[in-house]
Every structure is written in C-alpha cells, then in structure tokens.
Amino acid sequence: MEDVKKKIKSFLQEAELYQSQGLLNEAKERYVRAGQLVKKNENLIKNKNLLKVISKKIHVLKEKIDRIESGPISVEMPKQIQDIIKHKFSFSKNDDAGALEGAIALAKFGQFEAALNEFDELIKTASISVEAAKNIIRCHKALDSLDEAANRYKEWLSENFFTPAQLNKLRVFLQGILDSQGVDIKLPKKDIITSPSLETLMDTEVSETEAVETVIPEKIVEQEINDEDIIDISSVGITFTEGPKKGETIEYDVSFQAGSIINLLISGDDKELVENLRTGVVLNEVQFYSPIAMFNGKAVVSSKSEIESGPKQGYYSLDIKVTSIL
C-alpha cells in the first residue's frame, strides 16, 4: 500500500516538474499514469478529490498542447530581429545580390510586410529589379492580397519603369499565379503605341508573338534554378521507377516551398508507398508544374514525418529537394 502511494506521489512530482519545463506531453503522460493508479487503488486513497484534481490537470494540459501545436509558424517580429534576419541570413558577397537575399530571408521567415518594404527599394536597382518585382508578387500571394499585386503591376505598366520585355515577364509570372489561385483578373499587356523608342518597340513586338510567349517562361525557369530560388511550384508528379508503383505517376499538390525544398502532404493510407519514400531516396523522374511552365527534373526525399494531430492527422509531410532540372 505504501508502495502504491509512493508511486503515485512520484508520478505527480514528475508531472509537475515536466510541466514547469514545458515538457507538456511528458507531463500529461505522467498524470494519466498517476490517475490510472489512483483508480485501481481507490480503496487505499483517502483523498477522494485526487482523481478529479488529476483529470482537471490533464484537461488543462491538453488545451495547452493544442494551443502550442496549432500555434503560428511565424509572427511579425520586432525590427531588431528583422534586422538580424536581413543582415545575417544573407550570404552573398555581392552587394545587390546580398540585399536581395536579405529581403528574401525576411519573406522566408514570414516577415512579409518588412520584406515588401525591402523589395520596394530593391526594385530601383537595375540588376535585380525584375527579381525584386517577382518577390513583391510572391509576398502578396503569401499575404493573400493578389489584387494588390495586380495593382502594383498596373502601376509598373504606367510608370515606364520596366522595359516592355521585363513587363511581359512579370505579366506572365503574375497571370500564372492569378489563374492558379482562381483570382479572376486579366492583366493588361503593354501597349505598343505608348512606347515609341525603337528598342522598346522591338521588344514588345517580339513578346507579342506566340512563339516567344512560351519561350519566356522557360527562360525564367532556367534562370531561377541557377539562382537556387526556384519559381513557385504548384504541384509535382512523381513517376516511380521502382517498387510496387513502378511506372505510375502520382501527382501531389505542393503545400509549401522554401527555395528548392518542396513540401508535399501524402496520405498515409498507402503504406507501401509511404514506406518507399524514405529519406535519401532519389526520385529520378519528377515533373514540376508551376503556373507558368512545366519542367522535368530530379529530386531527393530530404525528410518525412507523420502528422500526429490536427486535420491532416495520418498524413505524411514529405520534403523533397529539387536536385536537377532537365
């Protein structure tokens, strides 16, 4: 009898300490075990309230755990932290590229407003102006304010700031995103008459032809892979070259993307498939679908973890890293 009481007491002590350390799952587990012991030995326990107290504690812990698990991946941080992100998470030695990298880092950490401010400045630097503009569009996509992106594009159009060829690139890029997101906006094209100089006129004429319409997106793709900052990919098709699904192509939506790392959610129902997509496995035939282009390439599974709670429970979160583009 003393043994049981001692055991319960030590479970409760452990639970309290784990809770104070923020080890909430461990604390909960200890309370559950203490509760089970109390129940089993009800006749020995004088304090009839104990079970109630324990289940209250478990309840509070559960709520806390839920709150933390559904907590934000990112929140707007004070300037001091944004400055560190901007300066310390930019690794390029080149000033302009470095500044662009710093701004992209802000966006990667979810500091979209601050990133937008940076890109607005960087757009004035010729060598990176198109990249900056594309990132403005990406930020608006992340902020769910694509209509603002469309307004920005229209400003650029009226400002004569970008060359017609650049404007065309931006239009194709943004229109692709608008279409894929189901936003019903048709972006106007650059009007030839308003750009009278010979050079711009030629640019525009070229971009008006059908052939170039399809070439330009591919060019963007190439350039962006080199940048190691791949364009937004909306879905991927994985063709299995071995295993039970050999020869089959399965398409997955991209849940998020950080540069060349693409995160997919795959259902846990197909055990064999999940089992085959082990970390380190090379995927030799992958089709990447972006709003503006489709291209083939290779990727490697860089991590896989089961989602243990929430609406996607039972699914697997799979990171694949694009390793080459054909």
Binding site: F89, A258, I261
Partner: peptide
C-alpha cells in the same frame, strides 16, 4: 524543421545540447 535548417546555413561549429531527463 525548415527554420532549423535556415539557421544552420554556413555554420562553423555546433554545440549539441541533450536533455538528461529519461523520458527525452
């Protein structure tokens, strides 16, 4: 996990802190 990877970029040295608590 994605943030951990970003912080690790261009790292020169690592101190791995392990938790001595048995359940960890």
């Amino acid at each position: 996990s994605a943030t951990r990877k970003m912080v690790l970029r261009e790292v020169d040295g690592v101190a791995f802190v392990a938790d001595s608590i048995k359940v960890r």
